[in-house]
Amino acid sequence: EEPGTYGVALYRFQALEPNELDFEVGDKIRILATLEDGWLEGSLKGRTGIFPYRFVKLCPDTR
């Protein structure tokens, strides 16, 4: 996996908008950016989108 910051999904998130990223509990999401209003941008399984930061637990930065 690529170096960078990752978050592990604490809850299932179902995308409601085309720019959102849906995921299941336990998915490991690569964090790409921190956005305003409590949203993160991340990538998972070749898809990129935004999601609420409270749905993931950030992992320590590992290489």
Results as ranks from 00 to 15, higher is better:
Thr34Ile: 11
Asp27Ile: 02
Tyr11Thr: 14
Cys59Trp: 08
Arg47Phe: 03
Leu58His: 05
Phe23Thr: 02
Pro60His: 13
Pro60Val: 11
Phe23Leu: 11
Leu35Ser: 10
Thr34Ser: 12
Asp37Glu: 07
Arg47Val: 06
Leu21Met: 01
Thr48Cys: 09
Asp61Lys: 12
Phe13Asp: 05
Thr34Ala: 08
Lys57Glu: 04
Phe13Lys: 10
Glu41Trp: 14
Leu16Cys: 14
Tyr11Asp: 09
Leu44Gln: 02
Pro60Glu: 12
Arg30Lys: 15
Glu2Ala: 05
Thr5Gly: 02
Glu2Ile: 13
Val25Ile: 11
Gly7His: 08
Lys45Leu: 06
Glu17Trp: 06
Phe55Gly: 02
Ile50Lys: 15
Glu17Phe: 06
Ala33Leu: 04
Phe13Gly: 03
Glu24Ile: 07
Ile29Lys: 00
Pro52Ala: 03
Leu32Asn: 12
Gln14Thr: 12
Cys59Phe: 13
Val25Ser: 07
Gly26Arg: 01
Leu16Gln: 15
Gln14Pro: 05
Gly49Thr: 01
Leu40Ala: 15
Ile31Asp: 02
Pro52Gly: 06
Leu21Ile: 04
Leu32Asp: 06
Thr48Ser: 08
Leu32Ala: 01
Leu44Met: 05
Trp39His: 02
Gly4Asp: 13
Asp61Trp: 10
Lys45Phe: 08
Ala15Gly: 14
Tyr6Ile: 11
Gly42Gln: 02
Leu35Cys: 10
Ser43Asn: 09
Ile31Ala: 00
Phe51Val: 10
Gly49Glu: 00
Glu24His: 10
Ile50Arg: 15
Tyr11Met: 13
Leu32Gly: 04
Cys59Gly: 10
Pro3Cys: 10
Gly38Ser: 05
Phe23Arg: 03
Tyr53Gln: 15
Asp37Leu: 04
Glu41Cys: 12
Thr5Leu: 14
Phe55Cys: 12
Pro3Trp: 10
Thr62Arg: 13
Ile29Glu: 03
Cys59Ile: 14
Arg54His: 14
Asp61Pro: 13
Glu36Cys: 07
Val25Asn: 02
Lys28Thr: 09
Glu1Gly: 11
Arg47Tyr: 09
Arg54Pro: 06
Phe13Tyr: 15
Asp22Glu: 14
Ala9Leu: 04
Pro18Leu: 07
Pro3Gly: 10
Gly46Gln: 02
Thr48Val: 12
Glu2Ser: 05
Arg47Glu: 14
Gly46Met: 02
Ser43Val: 08
Tyr11Ala: 15
Glu24Cys: 07
Pro52Gln: 00
Leu32Thr: 09
Asp27Gly: 02
Phe55Leu: 11
Leu35Glu: 01
Ser43Leu: 08
Phe55Gln: 02
Arg30Ser: 07
Glu36Ser: 10
Gly49Ile: 05
Arg54Val: 12
Asn19Arg: 11
Gly38Met: 01
Ile29Phe: 05
Gly46Trp: 03
Lys28Glu: 11
Ala33Pro: 07
Gly4Ser: 12
Leu44Arg: 08
Arg30Leu: 11
Gly46Cys: 03
Ala33Gln: 10
Phe55Arg: 04
Gly38Asp: 11
Asp27Phe: 01
Asp37Trp: 00
Ser43Ile: 06
Gly38Glu: 04
Gly4His: 15
Phe55Glu: 04
Gln14Leu: 09
Arg54Glu: 12
Val8Asp: 03
Pro18Ser: 12
Tyr11Ile: 11
Thr62Ser: 14
Thr62Ala: 13
Asn19Ile: 04
Asn19Ala: 10
Thr5Ala: 12
Leu44Pro: 05
Phe13Gln: 10
Phe13Pro: 04
Arg63Phe: 10
Ser43Cys: 09
Arg54Thr: 10
Val25Leu: 00
Ala15Phe: 00
Arg63Ser: 15
Glu17Val: 07
Phe51Met: 07
Gly46Arg: 04
Glu24Thr: 09
Gly7Val: 13
Gly49Pro: 00
Glu24Ser: 08
Gly38Phe: 03
Asp61Arg: 09
Tyr11Val: 12
Leu58Ile: 12
Ile50Gly: 01
Arg12His: 07
Lys28Ile: 09
Arg63Glu: 07
Arg12Ile: 02
Ile29Pro: 08
Leu16His: 15
Gly4Phe: 13
Leu10Thr: 12
Ser43Lys: 11
Arg63Ile: 13
Gly26Gln: 12
Leu40Trp: 06
Gly26Tyr: 01
Ile29Ser: 02
Glu20Val: 03
Asp22His: 14
Pro60Leu: 07
Gln14Phe: 07
Tyr11Gly: 07
Glu24Lys: 11
Gly49Gln: 00
Lys45Thr: 01
Ile31Thr: 03
Pro52His: 02
Glu20Ile: 04
Ile31Val: 07
Tyr6Val: 11
Leu58Asp: 08
Glu24Phe: 09
Leu40Cys: 15
Thr48Phe: 06
Gly46Thr: 03
Lys45Asn: 14
Val25Phe: 05
Glu36Thr: 09
Ala15Trp: 04
Val56Thr: 05
Phe55His: 10
Asp27His: 00
Val8Ile: 14
Thr5Tyr: 10
Ala15Pro: 08
Val56Arg: 00
Val25Trp: 06
Asp22Gly: 13
Pro52Tyr: 05
Arg30Ala: 11
Cys59Arg: 08
Ser43His: 08
Phe55Lys: 02
Thr62Tyr: 11
Leu10Cys: 06
Arg30Gln: 09
Leu35Pro: 10
Tyr53Ala: 15
Leu58Ser: 04
Ala9Met: 11
Gly42Ser: 01
Ser43Ala: 12
Lys57Asn: 09
Tyr53Pro: 15
Val56Trp: 01
Val25Ala: 12
Cys59Lys: 12
Pro3Thr: 15
Ala15Gln: 02
Pro3Asn: 11
Leu35Tyr: 10
Glu36Lys: 12
Asp27Trp: 06
Thr48Arg: 12
Trp39Arg: 11
Thr62Ile: 13
Gln14Cys: 09
Asp37Arg: 05
Lys57His: 11
Arg54Asn: 15
Trp39Thr: 06
Leu21His: 06
Gly42Leu: 07
Phe23Ile: 11
Glu17Met: 11
Leu21Lys: 02
Pro60Asn: 09
Leu32Met: 08
Tyr6Lys: 04
Leu10Ser: 07
Phe23Ser: 06
Lys57Met: 06
Leu16Val: 15
Glu41Ile: 07
Arg47Leu: 07
Glu17Arg: 15
Ala33Ile: 03
Tyr53Asp: 15
Ala33Cys: 09
Glu2Pro: 06
Gly38Pro: 00
Lys28His: 13
Lys28Gly: 03
Val56Ser: 03
Ala9Ser: 05
Gly42Met: 00
Pro18Met: 07
Thr48Gln: 10
Gly49Trp: 04
Glu24Tyr: 07
Lys28Asp: 01
Glu41Lys: 14
Arg12Asn: 13
Gly42Cys: 01
Leu40Met: 12
Ile29Ala: 03
Tyr53Thr: 15
Asn19Glu: 11
Gly4Pro: 15
Thr34Arg: 10
Asp22Ser: 14
Glu36Asn: 11
Asp61Cys: 12
Glu1Ser: 12
Tyr53Arg: 15
Phe23Met: 10
Arg12Thr: 10
Gly4Glu: 15
Arg47Gln: 05
Asp61Ala: 12
Glu20Tyr: 14
Tyr53Cys: 15
Pro60Lys: 14
